[in-house]
Simulated assay, not measured.
Amino acid sequence: MTVALAPARAAMAATGPLPTGHPAVMPRKVGVLLSNLGTPDATDYWSMRRYLAEFLSDKRVIEAPRALWWVILNGIILTTRPGRKGKDYDTIWNRELNESPLKTITRGQSDKLAASIAGGLLGEAAVGRVAVEWGMRYGNPSIRSALERLQAQGCDRFLLVPLYPQYAAATSATACDKAFEALMTMRWQPALRVAPAYHDEPAYIAALARSLRDGLAKLDFEPEVIIASFHGVPKDYLLKGDPYHCQCAKTARLLREAMGLGPDKLMLTFQSRFGRSEWLQPYTDETIKALAAKGVKRLAVITPGFSADCLETIEEIGGENAEYFMHGGGEKFARIECLNDSPDGMAVIESIVQRELMGWV
């Protein structure tokens, strides 16, 4: 009740008491919610277990029969995996802020977007009329809490921006599910827009190309091959109609064209497979091992499917896969950082928000 009445109280405080019998109407204000996958609260066993339980219980992430998956998840995975993943997270943990890099970067993206809007990104008329928050699909801060904060600030229209360049039911759709679930409990329900995936947006491709050129220019070597590694999903999801594979392929093609590279120079692969079923191929780890075995000595990897660096980019690519390459005979390996909250990264987010808020501000 407190949250539901907050916009009305804010309006009354701003305009003074309304005549008897007139309902309190909030000033028209728009909320922008940036959302990413999520993060554990800490690296200890129980924090990791809570995070993994929420993540792996999502029916869009794991589409196995529920009864069978419940036994596997609770009997095996949540017993053994939290300890291992906690150690992995510990290698990349932001000690100063006591949080994961994904949390640090997503906060930075939100803060910088808010600053740009306050500085006139959407025009002077929008200054003070657009609020920005951020939330995670799994873990904290949650999407629900972010929506409640926006509503408490007087927002009656929300723009949800899932920070996934390529659409997948296991990422973009499940973020929408959580937002819709929160709206179902609100008496004064706001209008909601969802920004679509941006796998082929010119601003995104241009930002990727600039980031890749800048990253390569900082190296003390010229890679023989560049790998564009995207997070994988089970092949069965593709066969059921998920467009993720096609959108990843288009991103890679457009990036090649922007860089003037052929498919043998900039290769598309998929990482982070889980379980025994077949996932999208070619696999990143097997490709890297094969390149080293063929005599490739210098390799760079970019991860265009991630809007922010996280465990899968820093530890899996920069740690685990770098070791595969060096142990296989490679000599030079580089991980190109994600767009993050860099000027190029913010240019992408700002262009999406500008376009999607047309007619609202």
Rank of each mutant, 00 (worst) to 15 (best):
I288Q: 03
V194G: 11
D44N: 12
V25D: 05
G260C: 04
Y198A: 07
L150P: 03
F55I: 00
T284P: 07
Y138N: 02
I317A: 11
M358A: 14
L239W: 08
M358L: 11
H199L: 03
R9N: 13
G86V: 01
R193A: 10
E316F: 06
R355I: 02
V130Q: 10
L280V: 03
I336T: 05
F230Q: 01
S307M: 15
F230D: 02
T313P: 02
R276G: 04
K332W: 07
A118Y: 12
L163N: 04
D111A: 15
D242N: 04
K235H: 08
A42R: 12
R355V: 01
D90L: 11
A175S: 13
S57Q: 00
S351G: 03
M136H: 14
D41N: 14
P196V: 04
K29F: 08
A191E: 11
E257V: 02
K235G: 03
P17N: 04
S47A: 12
D236R: 12
A115C: 13
I143G: 05
K59W: 04
T287S: 15
N74L: 01
S277F: 06
D41P: 03
W46I: 01
G31A: 11
P40I: 03
H327C: 06
M186G: 01
W46V: 01
D214V: 02
L299K: 02
L102H: 08
L37T: 06
S277K: 09
E337H: 11
I349L: 15
M267F: 01
Q151P: 01
D58K: 00
A207K: 10
A126H: 11
Y45W: 11
A292I: 02
E350V: 04
G260V: 02
A10D: 13
N94C: 15
V233S: 13
V127E: 13
A203S: 07
D220P: 00
M326R: 14
E124V: 05
L266P: 00
T15V: 09
G319H: 09
A203F: 02
A347F: 09
A126W: 14
L280Q: 05
P202W: 10
P101L: 12
M346F: 13
A228S: 10
A170E: 03
L56H: 00
A115H: 13
P7G: 05
D341Y: 07
Q166Y: 09
G123S: 09
S342F: 09
V3T: 13
F325Y: 03
V225L: 14
F274Y: 13
P234I: 02
D309C: 05
S57K: 00
M267L: 10
T104Y: 14
P304K: 06
R60M: 08
A292V: 01
P162V: 03
G128N: 10
A169N: 05
D285G: 02
C248G: 03
I117F: 14
M358P: 00
L102S: 11
S342C: 06
P23Y: 11
E96Q: 10
R210V: 04
L113K: 10
D177P: 00
A11P: 04
A131I: 12
G318P: 04
S47G: 11
L33A: 08
A168S: 09
H231L: 13
G135P: 04
V361Q: 14
I227W: 10
T2V: 10
A175W: 13
G75W: 07
G83I: 00
L357V: 06
